[in-house]
């Protein structure tokens, strides 16, 4: 509790998503887990999990199916509550806030759910613009412009009037990413964004994640089974060169801003950057890395 960040903007005055730089300055923690534990009935899913996500950095969660990766993302959003421990997001105690207070924290969070979780009664346009349309007073024309912009970003501009059921799995995943970023959140959580997709589509999605992180300074948490995508995200960077966006291999300093966390049986068994992960000699890690 003592090492928790103190927010200069208490929740009562928090109305617009204040930029995190204003609030904390660079290098500040935006998500903090402090000894978090959670059990469903008598099955322990997370035990004593602690980590800190720094503004503009990336955390990549690895672990076998059922290790509790999705659960961590749901805890950050306040969709679940921990049995013990403290969770700070943007300087708010999400483990304690009431549901209506959580809405303010969620305003600065975007989430890409494991299966996309698109609203299947709404079109792609309505899905992507949902938050702006329903939860803000933005004029309709402006909402539409933003929807077209983010759909262009994920390369699905021509699918704007389709229903989710008329999309392929990969397209649905990209629409979910567009929906998560439409309201310009400063933290985006990705739950297995590339699982079950072909390598080409996977790389496109990895690049969206990299672009958001490096060009819009979004702090990211990525959950994945796909080692290749994890390393790609950790070791690449996006730059804007005379108006064109390019994804390049990152320098070692940038590479250190992406940290891997490996979960096994409800606990953290590894924490470190890409180089450290590749160099690790732990047998479990080695089997996981293949």
């Amino acid at each position: 509790m003592e090492r928790a960040p103190q927010s200069p903007t208490p929740s009562a005055e928090y109305d617009a998503p204040v930029t995190l730089e204003d609030a904390f300055g660079p290098g500040a923690p935006v998500v903090v887990f402090d000894r978090v534990s959670l059990a469903f009935d008598d099955k322990v899913v997370l035990e004593d999990i602690s980590f800190t996500l720094i503004l503009g950095h990336t955390k990549i969660f690895l672990g076998a199916s059922g290790a509790g990766k999705s659960t961590i993302l749901k805890l950050i959003l306040g969709l679940l509550r921990p049995d013990a421990g403290v969770i700070w997001v943007n300087g708010e105690r999400v483990d304690q806030l009431r549901e209506d207070e959580l809405m303010k924290v969620r305003a600065d969070l975007g989430m890409v759910f494991q299966e996309g979780a698109l609203f299947d009664s709404l079109t792609v346009r309505e899905n992507v613009g949902y938050k702006l349309f329903e939860e803000t007073d933005l004029p309709l024309a402006q909402v539409n412009r933003r929807v077209e912009e983010v759909l262009g970003f994920v390369g699905l501009a021509e699918y704007i009037d389709r229903m989710p059921s008329e999309l392929s799995g990969g397209q649905r995943r990209r629409v979910a990413i567009a929906r998560a970023m439409a309201a310009k959140p400063r933290i985006v959580l990705y739950d297995e964004p590339t699982t079950g997709l072909d390598p080409i589509t996977s790389i496109t999605i990895d690049e969206e994640i990299i672009k958001l992180r490096d060009l819009e300074n979004v702090s990211s948490i990525v959950v994945t089974h796909q080692l290749r995508d994890a390393f790609y995200i950790a070791t690449h960077t996006a730059v804007r060169e005379n108006g064109r966006i390019r994804v390049l291999p990152a320098d070692p300093k940038k590479e250190k801003q992406a940290e891997f966390i490996m979960l096994k049986e409800a606990r953290v068994v590894f924490e470190g950057n890409a180089a450290e992960l590749s160099a690790s000699s732990d047998t479990y890690l080695r089997t996981f890395l293949g």
Partner: peptide
């Protein structure tokens, strides 16, 4: 959950 995550 997606609804809640989007602030609804």
């Amino acid at each position: 959950n997606a609804l809640r995550a989007l602030g609804t």
